[in-house]
Design a protein around this nucleic acid. Sequence first.
DNA 1: CCTCTTGTTCATTTTTTTTTGAACAACTTA
DNA 2: TAAGTTGTTCAAAAAAAAATGAACAAGAGG
Lengths: 183, 183
Amino acid sequence: MPASPSLSPSSAAPSTPGPVAATPAGLEPVQAEFIALFVAAAEVFGVPRSLGEIYGVIYASPRPLSFQDIVDRLAISKGSVSQGLRMLKSLGAIRTAYVPGDRRDHFEPETELRTLVGGLLRDRVNPHLEQGRHRLERVGAEIVAGKGLSKTEAAVLRARVQKLENWRRKGATLLPILTRVLS
Amino acid sequence: MPASPSLSPSSAAPSTPGPVAATPAGLEPVQAEFIALFVAAAEVFGVPRSLGEIYGVIYASPRPLSFQDIVDRLAISKGSVSQGLRMLKSLGAIRTAYVPGDRRDHFEPETELRTLVGGLLRDRVNPHLEQGRHRLERVGAEIVAGKGLSKTEAAVLRARVQKLENWRRKGATLLPILTRVLS
DNA sequence: CCTCTTGTTCATTTTTTTTTGAACAACTTA
DNA sequence: TAAGTTGTTCAAAAAAAAATGAACAAGAGG
């Protein structure tokens, strides 16, 4: 193993005062606080808690962390770290950094909000927007007065389909703008 | 427990000349398509599937639906419908409509996108933004060169806290604008 | 007071998601 | 080739979230 982490592993505090729950092995309070922040964010965005932890510990480190560093500082399994890192990479939330004298990959945070939000939107929202367009067309075509629907009822439903189409269009034009504003 | 849910056709209701047959699904294809749309949306926003179903069936109906109507058309329990309706009301996604000659509540969809998105943001994002501000202040104060942190390392971390603060501020100013743009 | 309808509550059950960890693959070095 | 690292995979376990349904409340009518 190369140089030891710059933040000392240290002491298991019996009980942690303050708002952050018990700090896992080898975690400074500052780091724990950072991590808590990203765990909360992970919850908001509906991604697994471990993603927040991993991104948090990377974000909280002034230098790139190796796989093993992350496993050591968070009390989670190698498997979770491996999968978490993969997801974070695919989201564009972290990137690998070269560290001289160490053949292992090291990770540092992507700090551009645009990149992060963009990655999430790309993965979660965009596919549905496209599929939604098709479904809306189909629904619009299927609404016909007749079998159980009076003429006015059909009109109400068609108006609602129109409303959905407006939503979809607005969303589709707003998302790119949003990610641009988050420069 | 394979208790077969009795498909009780609501023939007693005088104001309900329901065209919906007692098919296993109990749904017209058009309605099913609408519902699929909102189920997908529910997934995107990270709310329970049943919320999407319930909102969907209400949205797909040209006239307000009673509690019982919803239970009949979707194959989900009374309990789920009750809780789902409560959440939808608190999100501002549906409202109750008066139907003459029927003392039961009836529900119709709120079709303003602003209201829907606003409700979600209010419930999911806002609380965290506020709490995040406090945590950021605390983290900033805790970063001091010394115990394991060199001066430059502390500077890197302080810069990252600053970045987070920028994110937070941007988010806080953007959200209200966003909901306003979604008129 | 009794009964019927309408809907809510909440302890359980079911389903889905997330995490774990041991086996294993890919490399490096000797 | 052997032996040591480093990280990945994936079946199974654990945890979390959601749905169920029986008991119960609240009100209407009788």
